[in-house]
Design a protein around this nucleic acid. Structure first.
Length: 721
DNA sequence: AGGAAACCACTCTAGACAGCATGTC
DNA sequence: CTAGAGTGGTTTCCT
């Protein structure tokens, strides 16, 4: 179908033409003819990269142009929010204002209410709902991207609750991967269902086993090893994406592959790759990455720092990096297609032992094969070492993906959501809560809510016992300040309870080790693990810091579960403590065997939790002194600095390293910097022209610095050519 | 006795969301 | 039951 024939405003067609879209893909056509343009709900279950976003965009904009109001587009990842936000800004040309809302970024200067399209993560939107933002009532369309994540254990309930709140109030458009029970989901959503296996790039799937690739169509190709599948792709001028189930394996495999891939590169490529490798900040993880990069191969997993991740993604897309070996980070994340996808593992370790990786996930990985516009087809190959290739084909390739199951009844999810209903949505009785539950996917799927009723009552008891809510004489459940604050802070009620339980100790003797240990004992903290060999060192450290730790001695009662939890939290506490004492990232990586990406996530979460601890402390009647102490600690965690650097952290382009350099050079506050000459600041290690300009601008002084380009910077290379 | 190879038991394992505070008919 | 790489220590075997 041609764009011309579409029954939408000329404005929409204008933007589509600008993007170079003249023709719609068959599933797009089917979806747009389903009634979604007339305002009906829609569930689209089609493969990745077959144009789901465009369907939602057209429907969204169409409704906005027809009825006004707002559209909200929900994504599962912050990185994805950024990607969609940039894409959607195309619509600004026809007067639609686009915003993004995630935990660490809100479209600045303006209130979200001024925008027409808001891209948000699920949790952020849930939080906005809880805060009762007035513009919510104007939401006419809600798009939920990757709606199959409704079945994910830890985050699925959020989507389910958002949808339950919005059903009937806004048009719902769900975009899903292929799932086992799309009909059931569509029925719950009261949506038209559009399913298709169509892809813009043909996909050929197969299994590699003992020197042979057996394709789904029965054909067979010979390769001496799975690595040859990679080399073959590179030789043909294409790229390969290898999925593995362990970080360590991703790194090792990348290094291994890079040796041979290196010999297939041109001199120009080698030079650029070397440049790329040199640009990395120094730490153990990056050293490995740099080495692999020089052979045109990279690994990609959550241990990489943000910059490194983006660097790998961009250069892989641009074709400079030929091969990426990744853990599932790349499977559901941002768009990184490759001609050939190789899946090395179909098993994964979990807390219950080894588990099969779900069909849904493997199919999403395979879906990354084939780059639209570059390849006429993509290839996805599962490597099977022990299993019968026929079985693998029937299970993962011909097999049906898993059904989606509601995760609402999961205790921690339910606890948070029940509290939110009472504290932020004014639900007052068990009856009202059950009426809400009746409208969820959980109830739709289970047909009865009997089993969940008992759980809800248990949760209510927990909430009352811990003073989140109370029962009035008229048998109404009303929220108490602790409950309201907890729901709005978006922390698990159990986290708030931990804060409350330790409050009296914190109040008596506030200290970073003890406070970090407390936040690390909450269910909201990122889990950090320690190896058996680390334990004795942790024990030693604990005994030397014992008087600063609030929690009970881990060996007081014989409880291996508590012991593990205690030392995990203790390790987290030591890492954060090192961080705020300006221990370098490389040293933390070395000492605690965590990676840069882990540190970022830890720090990010810790900052949020310390803020939350401060807010809960306020409710518990903390002194101003304690609140100030916690605020300082929060800032220190945010930037990873000692107390004396706090004033410098407001400067633009100044992080922990530059702040320390300034301080040591005698620039301890704004006044001393304002009196300095640019030349004086430039002499300081790590401070360049751009930083000095930004600093002075912040202090109200315009300075322009003309500088000779430094070695190994982009300018340096640009000038050289 | 010395040293290398073979063997065995044991350890370890993916990812990533959330606060804040806005303004007007 | 269902994986596979790495590690570290011990045994075995050969000279």
């Amino acid at each position: 179908m041609r764009v011309e024939e579409l029954k939408v405003s000329e404005k929409v067609k204008l933007i589509l033409r600008k993007r170079g879209i003249e023709e719609l893909y068959p599933p797009q056509e089917e979806a747009l003819k389903s009634g979604v343009l007339e305002g009906e709900n829609l569930l689209v279950a089609i493969p990745t990269a077959s144009g789901k976003t465009l369907i939602a965009e057209i429907a969204m904009v169409n409704t906005l142009l027809r009825e006004g109001g707002k559209a909200v587009y929900i994504v599962p990842l912050k990185a994805l929010a950024e990607e969609k936000f940039q894409e959607f800004r195309d619509w600004e040309e026809i007067g639609l204002r686009v915003a993004m809302a995630t935990g660490d970024y809100d479209s600045k200067d303006e209130w979200l209410g001024k925008y027409d399209i808001v891209v948000a993560t699920a949790e952020k939107f849930d939080s906005l709902l809880r805060h009762g933002s007035s513009w919510i009532k104007d939401v006419k369309v809600l798009v939920v991207d990757e709606i199959h994540l409704l079945g994910s254990r830890d985050r699925g309930a959020t989507l389910e609750v958002i949808l339950t709140h919005m059903l009937g109030k806004a048009q719902i458009i769900g975009l899903s991967a292929t799932i086992g029970n799309p009909e059931e989901l569509a029925e719950w959503l009261n949506a038209k269902l559009v399913m298709s296996e169509w892809r813009p790039v043909q996909l050929r799937r197969g299994v590699f086993h003992q020197g042979l690739v057996v394709w789904e169509d029965g054909e067979v190709d010979r390769f001496s090893s799975w690595e040859d599948l990679v080399y073959d792709a590179v030789k043909r001028g294409k790229g390969a994406l290898v999925f593995v189930n362990m970080r360590r394996k991703a790194e090792r495999t990348a290094l291994e592959l890079s040796k041979k891939v290196k010999s297939m590169l041109t001199r120009g490529e080698l030079r650029k790759l070397k440049e790329l490798a040199n640009s990395l900040e120094e730490n153990p993880t990056n050293e490995k990455l740099a080495k692999a990069l020089q052979g045109g191969v990279a690994f990609h997993h959550a241990g990489l720092g943000r910059e490194e991740r983006v660097l790998v993604e961009n250069n892989f897309r641009a074709g400079l990096i030929k091969v990426v070996v990744a853990t599932p980070t790349l499977a559901a994340g941002i768009n990184t297609p490759a001609f050939r996808v190789i899946i090395r593992d179909t098993w994964r370790y979990s807390e219950f032992g080894m588990e099969r990786i779900p069909v849904l996930e493997v199919q999403q990985m395979m879906g990354r094969a084939g780059r639209p516009k570059y390849d006429e087809r993509g290839e996805a190959i599962i490597v099977s070492t022990t299993e019968n290739p026929g079985d693998v084909i029937s299970y993962y390739i011909k097999g049906k993906p898993e059904k989606l199951f509601s995760q609402l009844s999961n205790e921690s999810n339910l606890r948070s959501q029940i509290l939110a209903l009472i504290a932020t949505f004014n639900y007052r009785t068990v009856r009202e809560i059950l009426n809400f539950i009746d409208r969820t996917f959980y109830a739709y799927q289970r047909k009865d809510t009997y089993s969940i009723e008992a759980k809800i009552k248990e949760i209510l008891y927990f909430l009352m016992e811990n003073e989140f809510v109370e029962l009035t004489l008229e048998d109404e459940i009303i929220p108490l300040p602790l409950g309201t604050r907890t729901a709005k802070l978006y922390i698990d009620p159990m986290t708030a309870k931990v804060f409350k339980d330790f409050f009296k100790y914190i109040e008596k003797d506030p200290n970073p080790i003890g406070i970090f240990h407390v936040i690390a004992l909450t269910p909201d903290m990122v889990p950090v693990s320690y190896s058996k060999r680390e334990l004795s060192k942790l024990e030693e450290e604990y005994y030397s810091l014992k008087d600063r730790v609030y929690a009970d001695d881990p060996y007081l009662a014989y409880d291996p579960y508590y012991e593990r939890k205690f030392f995990r939290a203790f390790k987290t506490s030591l890492i954060l403590h090192a961080w705020i004492n300006e221990v370098s990232e490389a040293d933390i990586v070395e000492k605690f065997s965590v990676e840069p990406g882990d540190i970022y996530r830890l720090v990010e979460t810790a900052e949020w939790l310390i803020y939350s601890l401060k807010e809960i402390a306020k409710i518990l009647g903390a002194s101003q002194e304690l609140l100030d102490y916690l605020e300082k600690l929060r800032v220190r965690v945010k930037h990873g600095v000692r107390e004396e650097l706090i004033p410098l952290m407001e400067l633009p382009m100044v992080g922990r390293k530059r702040a320390r350099a300034l301080y040591n050079a005698g620039f301890k506050d704004f006044e001393s910097i304002a009196r300095a000459t640019p030349r004086e600041l430039l002499k300081i290690e790590g401070i360049g022209a751009k930083t000095v300009e930004a600093i002075f601008k912040h202090l109200g002084r315009e300075v322009k610095i003309v500088e000779k380009p430094k070695k190994n910077t982009l300018d340096y290379f640009l000038n050289k050519q």
